[in-house]
Design a binder for these strands. Structure first.
Lengths: 233, 233
DNA sequence: AATACTTAGTGTGAAATTAACACTAAGTTC
DNA sequence: GAACTTAGTGTTAATTTCACACTAAGTATT
């Protein structure tokens, strides 16, 4: 079998986009940017950047995430190559897309307030340039599957969280309501959660404070590495 | 956000490789080719080809499959982009890989005997050039997941097949033994199988012939389209 | 015709998991 | 201390999963 490239074949450009998920306690959100410069100036897009000829798309995606969020330590995973022939006036571009999950804390929110990035509810994604809506849809399917099989949700939660928060996160990711009692039972049985002795008021109106949990990092890591069936089909 | 390409960035080559799965009744196999021409002449590789600047990798992969097997109608699915920076002396190449499942019938086997392609047992894959072993591993994981969630296995079986054959296929794909009684029960309950009134002898020594089943195409298609939880976690 | 041989095909019960369901507990505010 | 709001808790029935071993059918051999 012969696989011969001619000079004409080396004219593709590489880009990477990242779908960055955050959870504010009520809703699952992703980061959207506004494009500057032609083509599609002013259009909404996923955070994206060029991958230069000597770069690994994953490294570039991680660096992009660091530039946006200030940290490169959020988990990131490849989604796919989006390689359809679409017209970008400058030439053909293949997009290697990633998705990541991060803890949407206040500091991060404030930093981003003064930036070109906006958190958008996943149920309310505007039309995006290129095929970026396709990438978002793809990442949501992936997140849904991951959440079912692995305790990946934790990377979206703050260090300490209430049962209601994590349940709400699962509901957002899966797109359906879950039974409170069954959810708690299932989660506690996994033994991934550690009770803390902290409590919070969930809202101004709330009377009884709710207990805060954190997760058992060691157990979490070992379960994340090997393929463990977590909660919810 | 600014995403600017310079001319220097449009120097990537695109290739596609396909992992084509076949099942001969006993073992799950994939097609391996031998590379002609530098680099890596003589090395084993996945069936691969250049994607020209104006082509969609999926179309190219389908055409490649047609060239090899004589038919473009086998199901094919994208795996991923394998985009690490590895040295191909002619330039940087990003590989968009696919996997497909086909019915390994006798006609096809004979055609391929006189070709450069060889069926290789999935448990016995030789070292391949580039990062093709990585692609194969990735495709096996994918197949494993698919087989668990969808009745995808059928595309690997002949029109009519025995319970033992389909069980063996599942065992190969999942890499573990399954209980005969439980397997049959589960599969029959799915109502995807139609009994035929045909029988075969499974081997020369076998005495009692086994019943042949086919699958209910309509039901199969509807279950394949929506996300249906099939057999085996 | 009887026997031996080989693979096909079948059922049951225990254990675990899932799913549905509604009330009491705790703490705050008025 | 009463009212309010959200937190937190148990049980039961239905379903699914898993482990396990014998009989049935047809062919070949004598």
């Amino acid at each position: 079998m012969r696989v011969n490239f001619s000079n004409e074949d080396f004219k593709v450009g590489l880009a990477t986009s990242v779908v960055l998920y955050g959870f504010d306690g009520d809703d699952l959100k992703i980061l959207i940017a506004e494009k500057v410069g032609e083509p599609y100036s002013g259009a909404k897009i996923l955070p994206s950047t060029v991958v230069h000829i000597d770069e690994d798309p994953e490294d570039v995606a991680i660096e992009l995430m660091r530039r946006i969020t200030g940290s490169a330590d959020w988990p990131i995973e490849i989604l796919n190559a989006f390689a359809e022939v679409y017209r970008n006036p400058s030439g053909r571009v293949v997009n290697v897309a990633y998705y990541g999950t991060l803890q949407l804390n206040e500091a991060l929110s404030e930093d981003l307030l003064r930036s070109e990035y906006k958190w958008v509810n996943v149920n309310d994604i505007p039309p995006l340039a290129f095929d970026h809506n396709k990438i978002v849809d793809y990442s949501r399917e992936r997140l849904k599957r991951r959440v079912k099989r692995r305790p990946i949700g934790f990377s979206l939660l703050p260090k300490e969280f209430t049962m209601n928060q994590i349940q709400r996160l699962y509901e957002c990711a899966l797109g359906r309501d879950l039974d409170k009692r069954n959810f708690r039972r299932k989660l506690l049985k996994s033994e991934l959660l550690l009770e803390t002795d902290h409590f919070v008021r969930s809202s101004a109106k709330a009377r009884r404070p709710s207990a805060l949990y954190k997760f058992d990092e060691k157990k979490y890591r070992s379960l994340t590495l090997r393929g463990y069936d977590f909660v919810y089909q």
